[in-house]
């Protein structure tokens, strides 16, 4: 599979203050993104996610290292020809209307004539902003800005779409819609680079992930390889019986009304719980095995560091 984006040993330090004090942000970041995949870039706040993205897009210059986009050096504007970018908390020209804004960016990309008008109309429909198209951006909510921001990122029909925290500021329905759009982009053959700290989003749609912590990549690979299928514990909800009955079988997490939520760590004890409930004339409401999630891996890694 062809590599769409590759970073090799990227270093970046910022200098702050009157007497400049150096702060190393990226400490040799290396990873690659394959063609046609959704790549999740994961890390806590301040880990260096946005700095990495800015290095990729040439908004800041790495102190050392090499970045290639479609095999081209990222320093050349040509490398960004097929790239779309949506920044975190997008800020746009608030005096423009949604349509004017997209027209301006389409002009920058060299689109013109009927194809420009059609493209803008299509994108407004795609992100669900047709009705607000002629409203000034200053009147947009954060979620609306995020949507119009996605539309501008897709104007040049990019082969690589870079999204920095795209789901921040969206309501649950908006997040679902955004996820669907991203999955559709993949279906269209586009590659998506997605940075986020909302693990649930990444876990639902990403093929591969890289985890960055304090400027270093601490893990990367296919999601399936990172997360083991092993059952960590089983959650059993029981009704009609007191928690004390199950103390020897598992840990009772909570009780509400006549319901008890029990965490059973050993698989062999699950059968014992079931037979005990049947014996005492109780009722099993639900039984859910919990496998390892990205969140577990992430929390463990952060703790270990």
């Amino acid at each position: 599979m062809a590599k769409v984006l590759e970073l090799e040993q990227v270093y970046k330090a910022y200098r702050f203050g009157f007497i400049p004090k150096k702060k190393q942000i990226l400490k040799g970041v290396s990873f690659y993104v394959n063609e046609g995949e959704i790549f999740g870039y994961l890390g806590p706040n301040g880990a260096g996610k946005t700095t990495t993205i800015k290095c990729i897009l040439n908004l800041i210059f790495p102190d050392a290292g090499r970045i290639t986009i479609f095999g081209e050096d990222s320093l050349k504007p040509k490398a960004r020809q097929r790239v779309g970018f949506l920044p975190e908390n997008p800020y746009f020209y608030d005096y423009l209307t949604g349509r004017e804004f997209l027209t301006f960016y389409a002009d920058l990309l060299g689109l013109h004539g009927q194809s420009k008008i059609e493209k803008i109309a299509y994108l407004l429909r795609l992100v669900g902003m047709e009705r607000a198209a002629d409203l000034q951006l200053r009147k947009y909510s954060r979620g609306m800005l995020q949507r119009i921001g996605l539309a501008q990122a897709l104007l040049n029909d990019p082969a690589l779409v870079i999204l920095d925290e795209p789901m921040g500021g969206l309501d649950p329905i908006g997040r679902k819609e955004f996820r669907d759009i991203i999955v559709n982009l993949k279906k269209e053959g586009k590659t998506v680079f997605l940075s986020s700290h909302i693990l649930q989003d990444i876990e639902m749609i990403c093929d591969r992930v890289a985890i960055i912590l304090a400027g270093e990549i601490i893990n990367q690979g296919y999601l399936g390889d990172l997360i083991s299928e092993k059952v960590l514990y089983t959650e059993v909800t029981i009704a009609g019986l007191p928690a004390a009955e199950f103390n020897h079988l598992g840990e009772s997490v909570s009780t509400s009304g006549n319901r008890v939520l029990l965490k059973v760590y050993e698989e062999s004890k699950i059968d014992q719980v079931i037979s005990l409930v049947q014996q005492k004339k109780g009722k099993i409401i639900s039984l859910m095995p919990r496998t390892e999630t990205l969140e577990d891996i992430f929390v463990n890694m952060v703790k270990n560091q």
């Binding site: 908004l59 040509k78 960004r80 920044p87 908390n89 501008q152 990122a153 870079i162």
Partner: peptide, 14 residues
């Protein structure tokens, strides 16, 4: 300051 430059310079322009 308004960060509008981020999306602008991310386009293939010098």
């Amino acid at each position: 300051d308004k960060k509008t430059i981020f999306t602008l310079l991310a386009k293939p322009i010098h």
